[in-house]
Design a protein around this nucleic acid. Sequence first.
DNA 1: GTGGTTATGCGAAACGTTTCGTGAAAAATG
DNA 2: CATTTTTCACGAAACGTTTCGCATAACCAC
Lengths: 340, 340
Amino acid sequence: MKIESVKKESSAPTMKDVAREAGVALGTVSKVVNGLPVGDSYKIRVEDAIRKLNYQVNSYAQGLKANKTYTVALLIPNTTEPFFAALAYHINIVLMRQKYRMLLCCTDSDSALEQEYITMAQQNKVDGIIGITYSPNLIIEENTPFVAIDRSIGTGIPCVASDNFGGGQLAAEKLADLGCKNVAFLRIGSSLSNEPNKRKAGFENGCLARGLHYEMKILDDNKPYEEFETFLSEHIHGGSLSFDGIFCVTDRLAYSVIQTLRRLNQRVPEDVQIIGYDGVRLFGNIDYVCSTIVQPLPEMAEMCVELLLRENMKAKPPLVCLPVTYAYGGTTVENTREQQ
Amino acid sequence: MKIESVKKESSAPTMKDVAREAGVALGTVSKVVNGLPVGDSYKIRVEDAIRKLNYQVNSYAQGLKANKTYTVALLIPNTTEPFFAALAYHINIVLMRQKYRMLLCCTDSDSALEQEYITMAQQNKVDGIIGITYSPNLIIEENTPFVAIDRSIGTGIPCVASDNFGGGQLAAEKLADLGCKNVAFLRIGSSLSNEPNKRKAGFENGCLARGLHYEMKILDDNKPYEEFETFLSEHIHGGSLSFDGIFCVTDRLAYSVIQTLRRLNQRVPEDVQIIGYDGVRLFGNIDYVCSTIVQPLPEMAEMCVELLLRENMKAKPPLVCLPVTYAYGGTTVENTREQQ
DNA sequence: GTGGTTATGCGAAACGTTTCGTGAAAAATG
DNA sequence: CATTTTTCACGAAACGTTTCGCATAACCAC
């Protein structure tokens, strides 16, 4: 008797306890918990017992039995970059709506960590992995569903991205519409992802279509922030910059460029207009950092989860490209009515 | 035979499979996997079999058996506010270092959601919950360890916070040191947390100690951003603001205040100096948004995990207050050598 | 060679679920 | 009332681990 009471007090109640309390069989409790049909009188007794004991199902036992855990791992470099943070937020929302839990793994873009997290996720028997990984080469993978964001990694793994080419094109068109004649494209380093290249290609395409004179500048990974200061300085003659518009590959870069331009006594947007890419907002929902090409995060999140969890999807598409939009953020000349 | 082969192919290999492959007993495999002492010849055979079958332990079975899951749930309102995002990042790092996984739950400050996530976390048998919850009143809780951040919730639940009182004081002292005579404290709404009150109290204390004339303004929750524009306008006489320093309860608020001041043709920091609270940096590691009182996030994260997981901690302290620092962020007059 | 002592691999039991075959009771039929 | 059909709760088995009492083999001492 002492042993029993100790058992009951020290550990959480189980279905067996509920069954004993309600005077029914184990399987009956299970059915009530899972909403399967069961006689009314039984149902009531079980529900009372559950309330009385404050019973909670143990989802690890469920997971073991069902080989399904309602958990998805999200791999991102960090949550401190607003773009990743916003991505995590939207994916979390979508997962939650479908009663899934989200395991967050910050990889710091370290490929060893990325790999470690992937094995960890598999051991944890997550139902799938969504990852924005910039790891150079092959990532081993199992029969765990995987969806990549923004960068294709290997065949058979679908990738969700914004329309980078279209976005680049849109940036060029916007700058042209706003009166620019002489523009530049700025991006950092030879990223492993080819998505920035698409932005560049789209921009080039747009410039050609609109007859803009353009220049492409790829900054060295090591000291990009120093290097673009040099680059910009070199293009200032007699106090005025030879560009009247710049498309930066990310809002982050745009932010730094704007700071630098102001330091060089160039007025933004009067002297030079800036468009970034991502649609980052300060503090989550206040202003855009700059005029920008906005990635459709809610839709991207939706699509990731969709691709990951819907198993009736035969032949998952290798790349899903979602449409971007332009948003005014104070670094282009624009009448206020166009603000969103 | 067909059944066997199907079994082997369709689902992941188990310890039983490894044992059969290596020709040893189940328990022996378990020991090898867990690094317990086992004869060398056995060990080698098991390790070979593990490699051959690409075996991975099923941590849900482990969790079921051990009643321990190496998972911690983190409850925060969202990841889009940079402060929460940074918090999540640091907690993730600390947890990871201890081989723990982090379940991220964004609550949107909705008390129903907060409650839902807490029960979910308990069902999931997480080993503990770390939460920054602003939910008005009582949150039911179990024998699941809980650590609160920035706001005490109920007895027996430890709370980790930055030294809000000291931070307020520090802000006042800094403003005094920088030459202010007439300052204001600005905060939004009657938050349920009493921590902002401590910032206010500390600031007041500092102002008194340094003989600063001060004014306190608490903005209405509903339209705070409109209201402080009014408030500031009212304090402009003949084009100049009657304050020469403002302490804002968060960097977020400071950011908006700065925008508004500029719109009202007040120069920051020449006409009025601004200090915020939190230590938010744009894009994670570029500049501070404003001169600010920095919360020690790495230490706070460390402390949260420590309090949560160390069970030999008798009588956990109800409140752990960690020291803050001041950081220059361009909205105070300061010589550059003081920049960090 | 015998008896006693270590050392160590073995395998059953248990963790808390879900599932499914079984059988008893209830309902329907003639 | 007898027989067949339907209904539905019961409880054992299984999911993949860990743990622990046992038994076997190895070792040592005399």
